[in-house]
Amino acid sequence: MKELLKDKLTGQFTTVQFEFIEQFDELTLKFDKSAIVNVCAFLKDEDGLKFNFCEDVTAIDWATRKNRFTVVYHIFSMENKFRLCLKVDVDESECSVESVSSIWKAANWAEREAYDMYGIIFLNHPDLRRMYMPEEFEYHPLRKEYPLMGIPGAIPLPKK
């Protein structure tokens, strides 16, 4: 499966640099965030790959690295029973990445959650609202600078 993926992807995307990482029997594919929509659409539709199920979209806050965030996609191919992890780096100064919710509808809420928790903007998302926190909330709680105990007064009390 790894060889097939490598062949198909490097054949289709000549300008994109792919980095394959294998760890704990899992295959991770790392590339530049500008290619995310094209690569995902290719992985979903290409014969022999058919990654039709998007399990999860989330982000990692590395706090001190140059590219502060990494957006992580877990996709699964029901045909091949194979799971793939996609990773793109996102910098804090340009904290956005194209949404893949047009490819997998399941990514819709997962991206909303990542936006809520990390403040990463998913461009062209149909409904980018906060998932869990109230709309008035100013912070993104899973960022490393947000304290575990919360910030007093950050969540407004409900109106009487």
Binding site: Q23, F24, E26, E55, T58, V72, R83, L142
Partner: peptide
């Protein structure tokens, strides 16, 4: 980083754990 999913009664429950080699996870999804 590790992602492990199992079939729970409600569906696929997955844990994504990022470790920096410390006693606590750097991130858990």
């Amino acid at each position: 980083e590790v992602y492990h999913a199992v079939e729970n009664p409600k569906g696929v429950l997955g844990f994504y754990i990022v470790s920096k080699g410390e006693g606590h996870p750097w991130k858990m999804k």
